[in-house]
Simulated assay, not measured.
Amino acid sequence: MPIRFCQGDIRKLLSHFNMKPERSSTIYWGIGRDGIWRTCKFDYHKDKDPVATGTAKIIATSLKFNTVLEMKEYIDKYL
């Protein structure tokens, strides 16, 4: 069974890593509290809208997580 996220989860995660959109773009970038530079393409609509599983995998990779499960565990632990 795939791991599901809603757009609100991803938005909170981007905020947690101090990532801001680049000049009214869907590209977010920033340096997190751990000192790692991250960039991520994310098109936000509403908090409750689901994120496709393939998109979640790409977001997890761009945020320097090894797997989607690792990203889910991070969200559950810190957010």
Score class of each variant (00 low, 15 high):
C6A: 13
E22K: 13
V68H: 06
K48E: 11
S25P: 08
Q7F: 15
E73T: 03
F65T: 06
D49Y: 13
A60L: 06
K46Q: 10
A56N: 12
I27R: 11
T26A: 07
I10E: 09
A52D: 14
W29C: 02
H16F: 15
L13R: 01
K57D: 12
S25C: 06
C40H: 09
L79H: 09
S24I: 06
W29F: 02
R11C: 09
P2A: 15
K77H: 06
Y44D: 02
E70N: 06
L79F: 13
K48H: 10
E73P: 00
T26P: 01
I27S: 00
P50K: 09
L13Q: 01
I58C: 07
I10A: 04
D9V: 03
T39H: 07
M1R: 15
E22V: 15
F42M: 06
I58P: 02
I58G: 08
S25A: 04
N66K: 13
G8N: 11
K41I: 11
H45P: 01
R33V: 00
K48N: 12
L14W: 06
W29E: 13
A52N: 12
A56Y: 12
I75R: 10
D9G: 08
Y44Q: 04
E70L: 05
V51F: 15
A56P: 11
W29P: 00
L14K: 08
G35D: 00
T39P: 01
Y28V: 02
V51M: 07
L79T: 03
C40G: 02
F42A: 13
W29N: 04
I10Q: 08
A60W: 13
F42D: 09
F65V: 07
S15G: 13
G8D: 12
W29I: 02
T61I: 03
D9F: 05
G32V: 00
V68K: 08
G35T: 00
I31F: 00
F42S: 14
M1Q: 14
F5Q: 13
P50C: 05
D76T: 04
S24R: 07
I31V: 10
Y44N: 02
M1S: 15
M1H: 14
S25N: 13
D76C: 03
A56M: 08
I36H: 02
C6L: 15
K12M: 14
S15F: 11
V68T: 12
S24P: 00
N66R: 11
I58S: 12
Y74R: 00
W29M: 06
K64Q: 10
A56R: 09
V51I: 14
I59E: 08
I58F: 02
F42Q: 06
I59T: 07
M19E: 04
S25F: 04
S25Y: 07
R33S: 01
Y74I: 01
L63E: 11
T61H: 11
F5A: 12
Y28D: 00
